[in-house]
Write a protein that binds this DNA or RNA. Structure first.
Length: 507
RNA sequence: GGCGGCGUAGCUCAGCUGGUUAGAGCACGGCACUCAUAAUGCCGGGGUCAGCGGUUCAAGUCCGCUCGCCGCUACCA
């Protein structure tokens, strides 16, 4: 079963911030997990490069839009490297293949009668180049003003429309028969109540700017952003060529998105697809926002979090761990140095790092650095080993529903209990009283550590790679299935070294 | 305004279809241990489960009201 996972395509009028990194990270963890489970995965991310804002930003920069987007989208490609993302593809909406896909989809929708030419009208502020709703306006001396203070006028421009109004009932049926389509459930309820309140047709073209995909057969129009942007998910798989090699990945298993763009993914997108007789995605997950030290993040406050700076200061894996562990996926969360410090010092270094280090040091010193033989399992070992058998299944199940924080909690519950096991068994004391038993205990701990490191790889690829090195696990034996095959007795283990560096915590 | 959600230990939160002395992690206190990244393990203190009133043999868990907080309420991506 091929697995297709996507991030949104990121709009290039802005440089990457913590939100972009977070969305892609969550997707990356899923992608890595499925690969470890032996599934074939296609993980897509990319950039959204059309629209009036980009056109204008390029103009202001004195650049051609294409040159401008080439430059800005590079920052997003760089981010995938900085954050260790394992994306298989990176799509840009300015690519030729994307124009072809968009136009093919348009024609298909048009042929099936889902598109008509009408007029888009509303209160328009020339200065802002934006439309406003009546309830947003204020009136002084008979003139209406936008919230920005710009005067507005009633404008009417020709526009193609998608007959979204006809899809309400079909969408509701779809949500009903696919209860997992929208997550988390609170968002699902919001979407359903929105659809129940009635849908209007959707304007899907503009004549007021040029920087977009031309509407087939009517060059005066370019496609409006969402039809263009959403289509990226099928462009990347070869659409309209449904015989393309990658097309077997459709429909997507999970579109990971921020909560601000849920509606487009949960309403417009399945409607477009169903109208085109294509399968809708299996799931859309809307995650929350980060605050910075309790404060809402905004450019005007100047407290935007730069993921590159974070990684430089704290290291990649601690950041990846923190983002996935600190907050239930779907909820808003707060990024603070104190909280990061507690996770890094109190969980990664003290609980996991220290267990690995104390175990491997004992093996190094007392077993000549060789892996002790696979021992019998005694009653007193079951507290350590029995939960281990269920670890892969329980982590897998939790990731299936994107409950990353619970998956990590489950692993760390076991790591904590392994610390209890080593203290009770006290292999350092057995060294004098029962050396054989000492080797048994150490081998069991090695087995446990191997399992922890293996399942944690998607979250902390580099550090867990280093731990697997220290555990002597060869590169080809690091997937989930390999856990069933014990390592050969007596292999040489390298001298251990600490995996996590602690940081100063204030508060 | 309408629809929906939340308010449980100092902090962050679990508590499914109501049922023995309400749980976890962190923080805090004591003890133990000393293999290890001055770590780890054990024990413990602490909550009128927002408030009021109902239903019930029994309510944090259902119903009503009050107070407080939050989300959604379409075409900026």
């Amino acid at each position: 079963m091929p697995i297709y996972l996507t991030t949104p395509i990121y709009y290039v009028n802005d440089k990457p911030h913590i939100g972009h990194a977070y969305t892609s990270l969550a997707t990356d963890v899923l992608a890595r997990w499925h690969r470890l489970a032996g599934r074939e995965v296609y993980f897509l991310t990319g950039t959204d490069e059309h629209g009036q804002k980009v056109e204008k930003a390029a103009q202001d920069a004195g650049e051609d839009p294409k040159a401008f987007t080439d430059r800005v989208s590079q920052a997003f490609r760089d981010l995938t490297v900085t954050m260790g993302f394992s994306n298989d593809g990176f799509i840009r909406t300015t690519e030729k293949r994307h124009y072809e896909a968009c136009q093919a989809l348009w024609i298909r929708l048009q042929e099936r009668g889902h598109i008509y030419l009408g007029a888009y009208e509303g209160w328009y502020a020339v200065r802002d180049e934006a439309f406003y709703g009546t309830d947003e306006l204020t009136e002084r001396d008979g003139v209406k003003y936008a919230p920005s203070g710009a005067p507005v006028e009633w404008v009417r421009e020709p526009s193609y429309f998608f007959k979204l109004s006809e899809w309400g009932d079909k969408l509701l049926e779809f949500y009903e028969s696919n209860p997992d389509f929208i997550a988390p459930p609170s968002r699902r309820n919001e979407v359903i109540s929105f659809v129940k309140s009635g849908l209007s047709d959707l304007s899907i073209s503009r004549t007021s700017f040029k920087w977009g995909v031309p509407v087939p057969g009517d060059d005066a129009h370019v496609m409006y952003v969402w039809l263009d942007a959403l289509t990226n998910y099928i462009t990347a798989l070869g659409y309209p060529n449904e015989k393309a090699e990658l097309w077997r990945f459709w429909p997507a298993d999970v579109h990971v998105v921020g909560k601000d763009i849920l509606r487009f993914h949960a309403i417009y997108w399945p409607a477009f697809l169903m109208a085109a007789d294509l399968l809708p995605p299996a799931r859309v997950f809307a995650h929350g926002w980060w605050t910075n030290e309790g404060q809402k993040i905004s450019k005007s406050l100047g407290n935007v979090i730069d993921p590159v700076a974070l990684v430089e200061e704290f290291g990649l894996d601690p950041i990846r761990y923190f983002l996935m562990r600190e907050v239930p996926f779907g909820q808003d969360g707060d990024f603070s140095r104190t909280a990061l410090g507690h996770r890094l010092n109190g969980e990664l270094a003290d609980v996991l790092g220290n267990l690995a280090n104390r175990t491997l040091s004992l093996i190094q010193r007392n077993c000549e650095g060789k892996l002790p033989s696979l021992p019998p399992v005694r009653d007193m070992d079951t507290t350590l080993l029995v939960p281990l058998d269920a670890l892969v299944a329980s982590v897998g199940k939790l990731l299936e529903s994107q409950e990353y924080h619970l998956a990590l909690e489950e692993v760390f519950r076991q790591v904590r209990s392994a610390n209890g096991y080593i203290t009770v068994q006290a292999p350092w004391a057995l060294k004098k009283t029962d050396p054989t038993r000492m080797t048994e205990v150490l081998r069991h701990l090695h087995t446990a550590l191997r399992a922890y490191a293996t399942v944690l790889q998607p979250f902390m690829p580099t550090t867990m790679g280093a731990l697997l090195d220290q555990l002597g696990v060869p590169a080809g034996a690091r997937d989930l299935a390999s856990l069933a095959t014990p390592l050969p007795d007596g292999i040489d283990l390298p001298p251990p070294s600490p995996l996590f560096r602690k940081i100063e915590v204030v508060g």
